[in-house]
Amino acid sequence: MTTTLSLEAEVARLIVDALHLETAPEEIDPAAPLFGDGLGLDSIDALEIALAVSRRYGFQLRSDDERNHRIFASLRALSAHIEKNRAA
């Protein structure tokens, strides 16, 4: 699944750029949690990522259901969600 891998790298870069993280994009463990113990992101970051995603991929993240925890569970989960929902 080369598309997914390259999208993962792209989303990692998007996160690092949007949030001014110390971590290098390639050092983000795609399976580690983005929030809490993993990358240690917080709610400010969640909004920032949502904004960056809507600008780059043309769709809105939402928190209406349990899915949201899964979407932000890891870089891989977020990338998969973007893959499925991106405009065009």
Binding site: A46, L47, L51, Q60, L61, R62, S63, D64
Partner: peptide, 12 residues
Amino acid sequence: AGSVFYPSDIAE
């Protein structure tokens, strides 16, 4: 009652 957070949640 519901909890809203992202822009699209708020709008809806």
